[in-house]
Design a protein around this nucleic acid. Structure first.
Lengths: 130, 130
DNA sequence: GGTGTGCATGCAATTGGATTGCGTTGTTTC
DNA sequence: GAAACAACGCAATCCAATTGCATGCACACC
């Protein structure tokens, strides 16, 4: 299912802006902040606010996951599907701000809690900055 | 060790503001946001900015832990010692915004990563809001 | 217990991410 | 193709976080 079909399946109109954002998220190796996405799309005459609204819209329909980095800004990444990955824990380094995706099974949470879990965010210092 | 001694041991001057903030954090059952702390201390003619600076100062000397709630605002709580508790994971409910402290061993993280970990934040829906 | 030094505080102002309002543009449907 | 309505651009707003600076207070030293 290509990008256009994903949008249509989510009942969102297919626009060049949304395709650009999805494409950019697809290139990323980890979650991107709104600022990062907007910066990479500067050449495409896309307003920052529009990028934000696109990210929110994509999150609401479930195409994108929104997580809260340790630095207080939202990060976005493609969700499961042919283009993305299933939800998984993230590790944010407080020093170099790098966000790393952790394997799905790297964190074990008791069953009673895990049912409602949407996001697992671990903050600390990566091996380089340790 | 009472509050005054804790401050002195941390080489911070003992002021009524700092004592108030520490006392308030001691009453809390979970991490509090800056806004919550400031609100509860309204009667004491303590400026919001001062409360913020106190929280930051206490965090820097290690008396207080600062964690990142799932909603993008910082939360503060007393750290280990006679008055507080050791670092532990937190669970934030996206719906009712409640923050729950989880037992220290409720999340298992592989040894390679755990060394640098400062904070573990889990977001989702609590049992009530499920 | 007075006094000087330097940190702590109050107040005003700024930053920056997030969010909204509204008029215009563009996509989809028929 | 034209109508209907969602998406967009731009300006403006909100609020947590942060800074600057002048004043006040805690503590050490006399």
């Amino acid at each position: 299912m290509d990008l256009r079909e994903q949008l249509r399946a989510a009942k969102l109109k297919v626009t060049s802006g949304r395709l650009s954002v999805l494409r950019e998220l697809g290139r990323a190796k980890g979650p991107m902040s709104h600022a990062e996405v907007a910066e990479r799309l500067e050449g495409e005459s896309l307003d920052k606010v529009t990028v934000w609204r696109i990210l929110v819209a994509l999150t609401e329909v479930g195409l994108v996951d929104r997580s809260n980095g340790g630095d207080g800004t939202w990060r976005f990444e493609l969700r499961s599907g042919s283009l993305g990955h299933d939800p998984h824990p993230h590790f944010t380094c407080l020093v170099c701000k790098t966000v790393t995706c952790l394997p799905h099974d790297s964190v074990r949470i008791p069953p009673r809690i895990v049912r409602g879990v949407v996001d697992v965010q671990i903050t600390g210092r990566c091996e380089k900055c340790g």
